[in-house]
Write a protein that binds this DNA or RNA. Structure first.
Lengths: 138, 138
DNA sequence: TGTAATTCCTCTAGCCACTAGAGGTTCAAG
DNA sequence: CTTGAACCTCTAGTGGCTAGAGGAATTACA
């Protein structure tokens, strides 16, 4: 049996975050000692590892809840799991494209100015004031 | 003179957001009519455009505050503006790298499963349970 | 067995950058 | 002069935690 701190050390998830996951229903209510402290077994550990991995991949708490639900009902079709993962992938690709445009734009803005003159003539500030100079939408 | 709704239409920034920017000090307190409604001139319009552009580029409210402060003191060096922009660029590049790794990982996970079998044998769920299979850190 | 250090508990509040809604007032067009 | 749109302030909610207060339980060591 693991105390919440053990679970935290083993997964790298902070103690308050574990309690938060319980409070929003991602982790089932943990068993308690006579003194009301949470105790976890291997199941709790692997579920938290699952959650952590999914969070690192950017899945929302809600999406993770749906994935866990599927995991807990192994007879159901996994079409939903696949569609959640594909939606997440699409989301990541959209963000990636936006960030790439942003990178170009910021590069253009940040590199025009050597920082050696006064704000009156600063090209960074000028570029930020003048959206029309941007090379692409954002 | 523009009412807050005019400003909103011209910049694409929502009315409550404009009030929010005022409340956090990004926009100066607007002049008011006798009936207490905000009225803006060209200065307010261009400042809001500046803020909107900077937000689209991912600058934090705090960073934008510093940029505006510089803009309002044209005699000061623009080194700070350049350094804020460069920090933002660095931040975007870090996120870009992380998202790229994520995209690879999600692509691997989402594409292994055709969605046609049961959750018991679903490779998406298996991949999410097994971080060790990941090709890279995240 | 005692005690001190550590970990645990609950609860509330805060973070960012908004967004939503209630309940009421003012403005502008006809 | 009326109507309806737009405005006002205020509070509370979003997501995903994080921080801190104040107190109880557990563990390690003497």
């Amino acid at each position: 049996m693991y105390a919440i701190g053990d679970l935290s050390r083993r997964t790298g998830v902070k103690v308050p975050t574990i309690r938060y996951y319980e409070s929003v229903g991602l982790l089932p209510d943990a068993g308690r000692t006579a003194g009301n402290q949470r105790r976890y077994d291997q199941t709790g550990l692997s579920r938290l590892a699952f959650i952590k991995h999914a969070r690192q991949l950017g899945f929302s708490i809600e999406a993770i809840g749906a994935l866990i639900d599927l995991n807990d009902h192994p007879d159901r079709s996994c079409a939903e799991a696949t569609s959640i993962a594909k939606a997440q992938l699409q989301d990541v690709r959209t963000k990636l494209a936006a960030l790439t445009r942003l990178e170009r734009e910021l590069h253009r803005i940040a590199d025009v100015c050597d920082g050696l003159h006064t704000a009156q003539t600063c090209d960074v500030l000028a570029a930020l004031s003048d959206h029309s100079a941007c090379g692409s939408d954002h």
